[in-house]
Amino acid sequence: MTSTNGLEITVDGLEGGDSAVTVMLVGSLDTTTVEEAQKMLLEVLEKLEIGDITVDFSELTYISSAGLRVMLLLNKEATDKNIKLKLRDMRQSVREVFDMVGFTALFTVE
């Protein structure tokens, strides 16, 4: 687990060599936390050869365009590696930001 100002990221499934990894985001994905989030998420993707990444949004309370850009980058990198990215359990306020910019259609949102 790593922690930055206002965001905690937990990765589950990577150590066991599973092909399904779940990344949990807790807190805020804003200007101050995206750098660390981007680094962590791309590291997870790099270690994964095949399979899925699920990002659990249930404890993410805030996202801004800075966070959306990270998700967009992650989606692009995952697609390039043939890995499926899924976004799960978004809160309504976070979902609204995705909807506003038309991102809901770009991602697999569960």
Binding site: D30, T31, T61, Y62, S64, S65, A66, S93, V97
Partner: peptide, 16 residues
């Protein structure tokens, strides 16, 4: 809380 987050989003985007 709801309005706090919503206004925060607009302030952050404008500052960006």
């Amino acid at each position: 809380e709801k309005n706090t987050d919503f206004c925060r989003l607009l302030i952050e985007e404008l500052a960006t």
